[in-house]
Every structure is written in C-alpha cells, then in structure tokens.
Write a protein that binds this DNA or RNA. Structure first.
Lengths: 332, 332
DNA sequence: CTGTTAGCGCTTTCAA
DNA sequence: TTGAAAGCGCTAACAG
C-alpha cells in the first residue's frame, strides 16, 4: 500500500504538499494539486486513518451506542443518524450494549475512547455515573429518547403523546380503558413510566380509573398475551392503549382470535406509526423516528465543529394522532 | 489524557513494560504487571487506538457493510455478527450503502481501507469489480446471503427453501398457486431470482403453471397490494407463496379485508419465520438469521488469526418448513 | 524479565 | 506557495 512519501517522491513535491493538496486545503497551486491528485490516484493511495488521526487528533468517526440493533425503533434511528454522519464524511462505530453485562463492560473499558469525535446514545437512559464516564471522553455527546441535564438531546414529548392517545379514547366515550405497557424496565428505560403517568393523568382528569395494565414487553407476542389476559378479566376493557405499535398489533391478533372486531367491541390505539400500522388500519400516535436520529447527528456534528461548547440544546419533535379504523365509540 | 509515557514514568518502568503488562503479554513479572495496572488505573489511562494501530498494523475493528440497517433481516444479521465480534474484542464499523449513490461512493473511496481487520458484506451481491476492490483491502472478507467464488460465505439454500414451500402447497392439493416476489432487483439481489426459479421448477415438475406473479417489494404494503391484485384476477389463486414473511403478512391483511379466511379459501406461506409469523399463525419457511451473522463473523475472525489464507468456506445453514394455520387443502 | 530504540504514516508549525 | 522537520503515542525487535 502506497504511503504519502511514495506519492510525494513520485510527484516531486514534499509530503506536506501532498497532504494539503489531497485534503483540499488552501494555499496549494491548482496545477500542483491536480498533479498530486493524479499521482495519488495512479498509486492507488489512500491515507492511513490511524496515522492521520494520531497526528491530527481527529478520528472522523462518530460512535453510536444503542441497546439493540434489532427492533424497529432503534434500526430506524440508527439509519437516520447514519445517513447524516455519512454525508458529513464521518464513519460510524456501532456499540450495542443491551444486556447488563455488555453494558458494564462498555462503561468499564470505554472502547470508544480516542476512537470517535462524538458519541450518540440512543434510547439508552444513562445513569449519572455513566454520564460522567462519557463526559470524560471529552467529545460531544448527543442523546436520543431521554435527556440528562447539561447534555444535548433529541426526543419526543412522550407524555403529550400518551395524553393525546388516551384523550382520543376518552373522547370517543370509552370508560373502561386498559393499558398495555412496556417491560419492567430492565435497562432503565424511562419511556414506559412517562407514558403510563400521562395515561393515568388523563383518566383521572376525566374521573376514570384504568381498566387494568398488563406488561407486553414491547413485542408482538407480548401484546397478544396482554390483550388475551385483559379479555379474560371480570370486566374487560372496551378500549386499549398499547405503548407501541408492535404490541398493538399483537393485541389486534388476540382480538381477532376471539372473534372480536377491532374498532367494534374493542378499540385499540398504538404508538409509533410503524409501517404495519397503516396496513392493519391501526390508529396510533405517530412519532418521527429516523428524524430523531438525524437531528441528533446534526446536533453533535455542530458541536464537533464548534469552538467552544454551546449550551445544550434539547430538541423535542412533534407527535401526532393518526386516526384509523381500530378506534371507534364503544358499542352502546 | 495520560499517555503510556506518563504511566511508565509514574510506575518507574519502561513504556515497553507498560505496553506488555497492560496487554497481558507473557514475560512480565506478576507484581510488575499488577503495579502497572494500578498506576494506569490511577491515571485513568487508555491506549490511543490510533497510535496503537499505527504501530502494530492492527485495528481491532471489523467493518460490516449492509444495504440498510432497517429491515428485519439485516438488523438481525448485524446483531448476530456484532455479538460475536464484540465478544472477540473487536469494534464494529457500520457502512450502509443501500442506494446506488452511496454504494458508488463507498467503492470509489473505500473509507474502510486501513480501518478494519476484516470486512463482512451482508446480503449485498457485489459485482466482480467490487470484489476486486474489496480484495485490494488485503483483509479477510466474509459474505452473507450470496456467494462469490473464492470468498468465504454463509447463507441458506434459497432454492431448497422455495421448493419446500411450493411443494407444501402442491401437496395440499393446490393447483392455482401464485407468487408474491421481491422487488425488481435494484441492488442486484440474487435471492428473488433463486426463489422464483425453484418455485417454477416445482410447479413444472407437478405439471402446473403459476397462477401469477406480483412484485411485493419485500414490504407489508407491497404484499397487501400484491394480494389484492391477485384476488382481482380472472382466475384467482387458491394459494400464495410470498418470498418474505413481511409480504405474507400484508397478503393476510388483504385477505382479511376481502373477508377471506387465510388457510380457508386461500392459503398463504411466507419465508423467514419472522416473530410476527407465530403471532399471526403464518405457515413459513424458517431460516436462521442471527446465526448467519454470527457464523460469518466467526469465519472472518478465524481468518484474521490464521497465518495463511485457508481455502474459502461456504457455509449453508438449514431451512425448515414451519406449518401453521394459514395453509390448508383448497376448498373442494 | 525489562529497557532501548527505531519506526508506523501522517499533520502541522515554522521558515523560506 | 512550498519544504523541512518535529512530533502524535504506541509496538516490536533487539539487547541486556
């Protein structure tokens, strides 16, 4: 593999000039630059990233830390972030630290130390200690889906989303409304708690009490189990708010199995606006997902460029109610 | 940030000893090693990866190249590969080059040159020219979901999968069988072609002709559209083979909308064994997805360690028919 | 078992 | 506009 010295020698200039010419820096005569470019191409030269970053202190890489790569939400967010980073010339280093063990190892060793110019933490609520470790990296940090005082973040108003979902059911006239919630918080997700509180708040404000809450683990199967359980109760709900579309789809499946028409005897509303929601005619609260990733990426990119730390921005993206066929007034 | 020299000075040893001690190399007295470790911890020292890889020529990083991060299949494969790589101490660099433009830029600049000790190319059929470029990187290459002479690869027997699916329908007594296929090959995917050929082969072997083929783009919505179109034909099929579960689910939705009972008037079989397949009681051909990623990762890892290039392995993982409720004999 | 010493390939002053 | 030269922080012989 050709080095910068090979190019310099062959082009009859100094390595400094090659470096400048190839990086598009000013103060290089255009003919010189052209010549260097040509020679570099001939030699099939590409800078050694490690040498370059050792010398410059830059890595041209951004780390993305996620709980999982699978899962509709995470994949979408990563995808949104990656597009922006790639376009800005950054490479993406991926760390998925879903289980406790890998999470601990990650924070203990911080493998990305010195490997990234910025870090994006997706949907992973970090403890105060972890924030400290991340800040010790000395690079800009961007959060998606949760926020921490002093750090840049992007997210949605989960409470507002849950409120609009619940109000929609209340406004249709439902009195017995149940919740299919997220899991028992193994990773410390804050989302389920926020949505639950907002759900309860709206019910209370309308003089209602929930008709049950069942955990659905944010999966299809969990949603189906949860709905099945709710249907077997003494006084089954006439409407259900599922904290994610995936669980809502599972719930629809359970209804169908019980020969209950969604939007007929039982209304269902989800959260996300998953591609499947449209296909299944599921009423839901839409959130911009890829955009949360791209916005966060832009945020940290701006930080990298910035001379001094700007004060943390907290971007809240809008959610909106998408009414489809699975919600309707209760049967009288 | 402390450097290795700071640690060496403070510990009263040479930098070489620090390097050896911290990397767990032999020939370091245990007390010395302990002492160095302690001092390094005190100083919060972490090796500079760029310095380290500049000096050693290793990067401890593997690049994963995919068309998209979203999409059930890709996310799962990435996840499987990542787990293995992480466990082996490698970081993961992610390149998604789904659209033609980013694909061209990727191969033109090969940003991973010198940044990775191996490359995993997932479900992205590479042209001969592209293979040449990748090989020019001089690192082991692993392919998933397609293969190229001379390269290591992991995949399933797509033809066998499609045959078993089609035979299942034929064996149930169906005569009018349609295909919901993948998209028009924008990225050069070879999978749709292989599955289609196998489908036709089985029909032919049984003296049948297909009852139509409609493109479903590997999406829910596409599957629904495709099924809807098939139902509007002169002589609609009594059974449908969808090349992916996602399309099959869309097809089920279309049937439901037409008040047709899946597994009753029309049978549907998918491909993948997506989580949703179980929930929706969808008959399908199961393929190990995460395992394709992890196997490929192991393959290249072995190559990295290996002194000389072993001859290319081509691992074919098994598929199996999972019969559920959406397939049954045709109504007489 | 430990230390010395060349580099690894680039970027970046500082001079010219 | 270009060149010379000093590192960036580490690893890997080689010596001892």
């Amino acid at each position: 593999m050709a080095t910068i010295d090979d190019v310099a020698r062959r082009a009859g200039v100094s390595t400094a000039t090659v470096s400048r010419a190839l990086r598009g820096l000013p103060n290089v005569a255009e003919p010189t630059r052209e010549h260097v470019r040509r020679v570099a191409a001939e030699l099939n030269f590409a800078v050694s990233r490690s040498a370059s970053s050792l010398a410059s202190g830059r890595t041209d890489t951004v780390a993305i830390v996620v709980p999982h790569v699978t899962g509709w939400f995470f994949a979408k967010v990563i995808s949104g972030a990656e597009a922006v980073l790639r376009a800005a010339g950054y490479d993406v280093l991926l760390y998925s630290i879903g289980d406790t063990e890998s999470r601990e190892r990650f924070f203990a060793r911080l493998p990305l130390r010195g490997r990234a110019d910025a870090v994006l933490v997706l949907a992973l609520p970090v403890t105060e200690a972890e924030v400290g470790l991340l800040e010790g990296l000395g690079v800009p940090i961007g959060l998606v889906g949760h926020d921490v005082a002093g750090l840049h973040s992007v997210g949605i108003d989960d409470a507002a989303g849950a409120r609009v979902a619940t109000r929609h059911l209340v406004n249709l006239g439902h009195k017995r409304i149940a919740l299919i919630s997220g899991d028992g918080d193994p990773l410390g997700f804050t989302v389920p708690g926020m949505r639950r509180a907002a759900f309860q708040e709206v019910l209370r404000a309308n003089g209602l009490r929930d008709a049950g809450e069942v955990v659905g683990d944010f999966t299809y199967a969990g949603g189906e189990r949860a709905m099945t359980e709710l249907l077997a109760r003494e006084d089954p709900p006439t409407a259900v708010f599922a904290m994610s579309d995936e669980m809502a789809v599972g719930a629809l499946k359970a209804l169908r199995r019980h020969r209950i028409d969604p939007g007929g005897a039982v209304s269902v509303i989800g959260f996300d606006d998953h591609e499947m929601a449209e296909v299944l005619d599921l009423t839901t609260v839409a959130q911009p997902v890829a955009e949360q990733g791209s916005t966060a990426a832009s945020l940290v990119l701006r930080q990298i460029g910035g001379q001094r730390a700007t004060e943390p921005e907290r971007v809240v993206l809008p959610v909106r109610l998408v009414v489809r066929g699975t919600t309707a007034p209760p049967r009288s």
